[in-house]
Nucleic acid binder design. Structure first.
Length: 809
RNA sequence: GAGGGGAUGCCGGAGUGGUCAAACGGGACAGGCUUAGGACCUGUUAGCUUUUGCUUGCGGGGGUUCGAAUCCUCCUCCCCUCACCA
């Protein structure tokens, strides 16, 4: 067999696709659109990793498939190029972040082209360009106008290493999402976006999403809606509301616990207890977050007492490490009898445990199940679920309680004290206060000359920071914070529809044609960040009348993780990464593409095993060898049927994405079968190449051309499967039975009666008369399900119900 | 603690009531082609028989069914996400 020069073939087709603008699309009212989108990457100097390749290839197969199905396919790509990593890398390497970013993007594009991805590069987006972030600023101003942007002093997550504030979503587990440093909690004036206003809609909207269940569950959990009661406790003559979901247990309150991070904690600490409390705060401040997790619940008495409004009882107020400061009211009513955390705390400090719900409390466990109320005055005997409502009503009537809904979701802290981000379009004027930059002055361009070091880089450029107030014309200063990069990625898919529009954010018409995104593909790690922000942005843009839908990405697919051979996560530091370019160099792009999806379902991911790539390579080579050997003529009946089946299956498999792997199997199967055939019609062979082309686009184009075609195979239409008639299936079945019986009867020519036991779903299809006629014996047909018709005299196990088969006598 | 997903042959991984000793790939073994091969081709890869056929078998126990890898139930183990959310 002649050597195949994959590199040459790939390069040739990649060049042609580009030159002839095969994947560039325009709005076309006569054609149905299809929008395939992969999450755009964060460009780094390291280039694409194998996870990117996996993500893009999954999308590319789908886009190519849809294109062949006749859709007008929008398949764009861009770069989420603002953000801390670029800034940090640039500082480290002492180059301008802009240059660093442009180099990275160039490198990315080069690699993406080598993957044979069918992007419309004319729509490329680069969020670090003023033409793009101008509209980030514009959206920000719209939010500002609507009162969704506000400033407040708040406890924020401060990353000392990145020297910036980061959002809750990015500070999970007390560690910086970017650099892994321990997060400090600081009190600072900060800009927030009121995403909490949209909490309910974000939850409601889940109904309309065809998303992985898990992702929806994660978002629900993140938004964390819970219904409860807020009850006023009196401490030192002051009202202190607390939130509880268990008002039914109010008579069992034996102490209160306030969070160690509570802003007003010191108001409760008495002179006598100050020393103790300080010691305690130091203690929990000195242990790292991780150790804290393993620590038991600890606390100290504040010296104050609270009055339980239900029964007037005086209970001690503790400060504890297990109460979250920014959830609910930062203080809880503790009911040790019916809450495990309170129980452990009470046991440790010898606090009274008062049972108010019937149930068994042991030495180590509280009773958290339901039951009837006891020790609860007028409410005794009530079922606790019922009591929740009754007690709440009773508290409401007395004016010391209200029904409330609580969310875990916090407002989005959007300001970053860093350079490489979108400048916030606000101006601080001594006279006028905060003044938004007029829309005509947008974009506020990120200045060049800044100094990195301590503090905010933007403040080091005097020329930039000092402006005239747009309102009064007096001296004013620009807001020196930049926006969180999640702002940039929250609406980029809309800009793809109209990327070069600088008059307006996008043409409504164009967006109407292309949106929403029909399939969005990306990693599951974005479930609680990007995928919440993005939905929020969409809802906002809907509310200001720019778009007429509330979800941009109604269908979502998460690709799985690719780990190393041992199943460990790939990382630079471990040195176990796989470089897509090296693999392409060694085995060719089509081999890699085929390998990527033939290992496992794309949602599951797999462990990268170099050995197995050989299997994919072998298959690619097999196609060439078949191509060289095959004679064109007439397709056999058998192969025709099989090909038909294959086309039908492939169409279904690709559609789901989850079944890509099955598609590769189906393709292998059909080529294996073809190898055994003597000849095939040219038309049928071309069908085979067509169904191969989304997976292995280069060799499909190459062979298509070698057949003498002048067109691109990727622009051809997807073969249609013929419907297989039910009657034909019946015919097949009967023929098979006759064939089998003939075989068996050869050995027993003297027998005259044939008892045929068949599967229930085959029973109707069996043509008894025809079989009798063909084999010349008396035939009795039974369904295996039907015991009554079974002849118990038959001792053959073969004829027993449950075992379809034949009995002959 | 809450939520999500798993356990299949030497390995990866399909299969969600009968056409299942279980697709497909990898590996291993045997044979062929070759000077040789990590290149290619053919076959084998639960056990007994080796042609039909039987037995065992899809994490473990129990159940439903004429029939279970597949349905129900209990148990064990593993992975992921969020976690002291009141």
């Amino acid at each position: 067999m002649t050597e195949i020069n994959f590199k040459e073939i790939e390069w040739k087709w990649q060049k042609r696709w580009e030159e002839e603008k095969v994947f560039e699309v325009k709005e076309d009212k006569n054609k149905k659109k299809y929008y395939v989108l992969e999450m755009f990457p964060y460009p780094s100097a390291a280039g694409l990793h194998i996870g990117h390749a996996f993500n893009f290839v999954i999308g590319d197969i789908y886009a190519r498939f849809k294109k062949m199905q006749g859709f007008n396919v929008l398949h764009p790509m861009g770069f989420d190029s603002l953000g801390l990593p670029a800034e940090n890398a640039a500082i480290k390497e002492k180059i301008d972040p802009a240059i660093y970013t442009q180099n990275s993007i160039k490198n990315f594009i080069n690699q993406q082209k080598k993957l044979g991805l069918s992007y419309d590069w004319s729509r490329k987006i680069d969020t670090s360009q003023p033409e793009y972030y101008k509209w980030d600023q514009w959206i920000f101003l719209q939010m500002y106008k609507k009162g969704l942007v506000y400033k407040k002093k708040a406890a924020v997550n401060w990353c000392p290493s990145c020297s910036t504030i980061i959002a809750n979503e990015q500070a999970q587990g007390g560690e910086c999402d970017r650099c892994g440093s321990k997060i400090e909690i600081k009190q600072m004036e900060q800009w927030f976006i009121k995403i909490t206003d949209y909490a309910d809609r974000l939850l409601e909207g889940h109904k309309n999403l065809n998303w992985p269940e898990k992702t929806i569950a994660m978002q629900k959990n993140w938004i964390g809606k819970s219904y409860g009661t807020e009850i006023d406790f009196e401490i030192n003559g002051e009202k202190w509301p607390i939130f509880t979901t268990r008002p039914d247990t109010i008579f069992g309150v034996t102490f209160m616990v306030i969070s160690a991070q509570h802003q007003k904690l010191m108001d409760l600490v008495t002179k006598e207890q100050k020393k103790e409390v300080k010691k305690f705060l130091e203690k929990i401040g000195s242990v790292s977050e991780k150790e804290l997790e393993e620590l038991e619940k600890i606390g100290v008495f504040t010296g104050s007492y609270a009055i339980n409004p239900a029964n007037g009882e005086k209970v001690p107020v503790y400060v504890g490490n297990f109460v979250v400061a920014d959830y609910g009211c930062g203080m809880v009513m503790a009911v040790p009898a019916h809450d495990q955390r309170d129980f452990e705390f009470a046991k440790k400090y010898g606090i009274k445990i008062k049972q108010v719900i019937e149930g068994k409390i042991t030495e180590s466990r509280s009773w958290t199940e339901s039951g009837k109320l006891v020790n609860s005055e007028d409410f005794n005997g009530l079922d606790n679920e019922e009591a929740k409502e009754k007690i709440t009503q009773w508290l409401i009537k007395r004016g010391i309680g209200r029904k409330v809904i609580n969310y875990k979701l916090r407002d989005w802290s959007v300001a970053r004290q860093r350079y490489w981000g979108t400048p916030i379009p606000l101006i601080h004027c001594q006279k006028c206060g905060v003044v938004p930059v007029p829309e005509k002055d947008l974009p506020v361009i990120l200045p060049k000359n800044v100094k990195f070091g301590k503090g905010n880089p933007l403040e080091t450029n005097e020329e930039w920071i000092n402006v005239k107030c747009p309102s009064c014309g007096e001296k004013a200063r620009r807001e020196a914070n930049t926006m969180d990069t999640f702002v940039n990625s929250s609406w980029y898919f809309l800009k793809y529809c109209d990327p070069n529009n600088d008059k307006e954010i996008f043409s409504k018409e164009k967006v109407k044609y292309w949106m929403p995104v029909d399939i969005y593909i990306g990693g599951a790690e974005h479930s609680c960040m990007h995928l919440i922000y993005e939905r929020f942005y969409t809802m906002f843009l809907h509310d200001i009348g720019l778009i007429d839908f509330e979800e941009c990405t109604p269908r979502l697919f998460h690709q799985g993780m690719i780990n190393d051979e041992k199943g460990e996560k790939m990382s630079k530091s471990k040195g176990n990464t796989v470089e897509p370019l090296e693999i392409i160099e060694k085995y060719g792009t089509d081999t890699m593409r085929f390998y990527l999806i033939s290992e496992a379902s794309p949602d599951k991911g797999f462990n990268w095993t170099e050995k197995r790539i050989h299997g994919a390579l072998r298959f690619i080579k097999q196609i060439f060898s078949i191509f060289e050997k095959i004679k064109f003529g007439k397709t056999s009946k058998y192969f025709e049927r099989e090909l038909n089946k294959t086309i039908k299956n492939l169409t279904d498999y690709i559609e789901t994405i989850y079944d890509y792997r099955k598609a590769t199997i189906e393709i292998r199967r059909i080529f294996d079968l073809l190898e055994k055939e003597n000849e095939i019609s040219r038309e049928d062979f071309e069908k085979l190449l067509k169904v191969l082309s989304p997976f292995c686009p280069h060799i499909a184009e190459e062979l298509w051309e070698r057949l003498g075609n002048k067109t691109f195979i990727c622009c051809e239409s997807w073969p249609k499967a013929k419907k297989i008639e039910e009657k034909e299936k019946e015919k097949d079945l009967n023929e098979k039975v006759i064939q089998d019986l003939r075989q068996i009867l050869k050995k027993f020519p003297e027998k005259n009666k044939v008892y045929l036991y068949v599967l229930p779903f085959e029973f109707q299809k069996i043509n008894r008369k025809k079989i009798e006629k063909e084999i010349g014996k008396e035939v009795f047909v039974f369904s295996v399900k039907d015991q009554n018709k079974y002849d118990p005299e038959n001792k053959s196990k073969k004829a027993l119900p449950g075992n379809p088969g034949v009995w002959i006598e």
